[in-house]
Design a protein around this nucleic acid. Structure first.
Lengths: 107, 107
DNA sequence: GAATTAGTCAACCAGATGGTTGACTTTCCG
DNA sequence: CGGAAAGTCAACCATCTGGTTGACTAATTC
């Protein structure tokens, strides 16, 4: 496991980690609060957060004794761009796609 | 590993398998031909193809003694849709996105 | 200063992953 | 028919993964 895409897709391949990412969409969270809804130990969640951090999908910052977890959605961009080479995205020009996004976001 | 998204992302987390998918973008290929550029045994590639098949990213069909591998890009759709919840795709309406795609594809 | 809270670390475990090699089946070709 | 080609299967191996528990550090609160 060297490649950045490797680590991102590997991080996404676990349902618990995808759930954590969804939670962080709402707001930044402390490790303990991330762990709360799951039926597994805090240590297990801590490990998942390390994997997410190493992949770049989240970042962690310690303030006092609380470690805050923050979504880093840009990391998904790499994966998205790779995936655009395929399937329904086959014929789609990336520049046109981004222009579309800007337009959408201005609404 | 039960979930469909689990298997898709796990399949994508290996550089060899991503490379295979890229090769299949060009055209359907026999197992032996898929294996040719890689410095690993045919058996190893065969295993990778099983993983890709189980995830739905490719399909395999045997004709005579040759087993043909075919890209199934629709499987990536599930992963793409999941990812649209994040980052730059945050505010993008999926219907609008698909309308855009159709428009693009007609060009 | 003592107890509590937040979180990590280390050891351990079972099972998956990614590779090997050698034996094997099936199909094709001469 | 006999041999080569296309693949898979099974056994094996080292490493990674996802979880556990218990001990630990550091910050906070009483």
């Amino acid at each position: 496991m060297q490649n950045k895409l490797d680590t991102i897709f590997a991080a996404l391949s676990d349902a618990t980690r995808r759930e954590i990412l969804s939670m962080l969409l709402e707001d930044d969270m402390a490790v303990t609060d991330v762990a709360e809804p799951f039926e597994m130990s805090l240590a297990a969640i801590s490990k998942h957060l390390v994997i997410l951090t190493k992949s770049g999908l989240i970042s962690q910052e310690k303030r006092g004794r609380v470690k805050w977890c923050k979504l880093e959605p840009d990391a998904l961009k790499d994966a998205s761009i790779w995936m655009q080479g395929f399937g329904q995205f086959e014929a789609v020009n990336l520049d046109a796609f981004e222009a579309f996004l800007e337009q959408e976001l201005e609404k």
